[in-house]
Each structure stands twice: as C-alpha cells, then as structure tokens.
C-alpha cells in the first residue's frame, strides 16, 4: 500500500513505513534538494524529541537523505474521527510540545492518527525549536484554521482544544491563546493598502 501526502510518498508495510520526500519538478533542483533533505533531518530529530516530551510519535528506525523508515501506526486519521473530546486531547499534546520548546509547524487533522485511544502526531517536517509567543500562536492558528475550514462544529472543537492546552501548559496558555486571536485579527483586517 502506498499513501500520498502533501509532499511525501509513504509506503506502508505491516512492520514499518517508508516516507520518501519525492522531488518536485516545479521547484528548481537546488531549492528542492535543500528542502527535502532539511525537512527529512528535522523530522527525524524532532519526532524523537517530541516522544521524550510525552507526545506519542512513531519510532524512527532509519534516516536516509530523503527518506525515513519508521513505525507503522495502524489507526485512523484524526480528520475522520475528531470529536471535542479528542480535540481536547490534541490540546494536551500540543501544550506538552510547546512546553518542551517545540513547534509542530503543520498541525492539521491529516497529521494525527488515532490508534486505540492514543493520538499519535506525525509529519514533523516543518517542525522547529522556538519558545516565542508568536511561533506558538501561529502553530495553534494553523490548527484552528483547519478546524474552521474542514470541520463542522469547529467552535466546540476549538474550545475543547483550548481547555486541553491550558491544562497541559497553564503558565503560558492564556498568552498564547490571546496571540492566536491577534493573528486571526491581522489576517481578517488586511486591506489592499500596502
């Protein structure tokens, strides 16, 4: 079986998956190779770092130049199963991640897998270390935007997320969530003036 994500081809085997960042013919080779290798390396590093911070992620078995071999998480994409209860659990995971100084960078409901009652985070190619309010705010903003664009009842899902996020990261949550509102406001009140 093979899955095609936004940037990678993922081959699924019973005991492992191979995620290969395939060349993009629209990008000049220089930029393309740089992005693919940088992201592969970042993902390998941060996926393990995140697990140490208490976020379930697949175990990485091997790192190649443009490919990762990792544990197969046999479950369902969050996109198809999300409920307020699950969104609250996502809030807890993201709170832990941020508390550890990490930013996921691509918090969509396509990048979380529910196996049993455990939520796994995947796709850490756009992840980085950053402890600023702005980086955390944008991370949550990306998640909220997916909820708004792709899911019914997004308000309940957002509230539940905030609740989980507060519980896991009480010392910063209010500031981050305020920043998220600011970021949304900036987008909304952009006009044609340069």
């Amino acid at each position: 079986m093979e899955k095609r994500g936004a940037e990678a081809v993922v081959e699924l085997f019973p005991d492992r998956v191979i995620k290969t960042r395939v060349p993009k013919s629209y990008r000049i080779p220089e930029l393309d190779e740089r992005l693919r290798s940088e992201r592969t390396r970042a993902e390998a590093k941060i996926i393990s770092e995140a697990r140490r911070a208490g976020i379930p992620t697949p175990i990485v078995y091997d790192v190649r130049q443009y490919a990762l071999v990792m544990e197969f998480v046999d479950g369902r994409p969050m996109k198809e199963v999300i409920t307020p209860e699950l969104s609250r659990a996502v809030g807890v995971l993201v709170g832990r991640l941020h508390k550890a100084g990490l930013i996921h960078g691509d918090l969509t409901t396509s990048n979380m897998i529910l196996r049993g009652d455990v939520i796994y985070m995947i796709d850490f190619g756009l992840s980085f270390w950053d402890g600023t309010l702005e980086a955390r705010g944008v991370d949550v903003h990306v998640y909220y935007q997916t909820l708004i664009s792709s899911h019914e009842d997004h308000e309940a899902l957002m509230d539940a997320f905030a609740e989980g996020y507060r519980a896991a990261f009480p010392e910063a949550a209010d500031d981050v969530l305020r920043r998220v509102k600011e970021i949304e406001y900036r987008g909304r009140y952009k006009t044609e003036t340069p």
Partner: peptide, 13 residues
C-alpha cells in the same frame, strides 16, 4: 543563479 532566501511555510499558511 539562485540566492538562498528564507522559505517559510506553516501548514497551509
């Protein structure tokens, strides 16, 4: 020749 510049994508933003 391509001069390296910041390439910033965050999710779909």
């Amino acid at each position: 020749s391509y001069i390296k510049m910041p390439y910033v994508v965050k999710g779909m933003d």
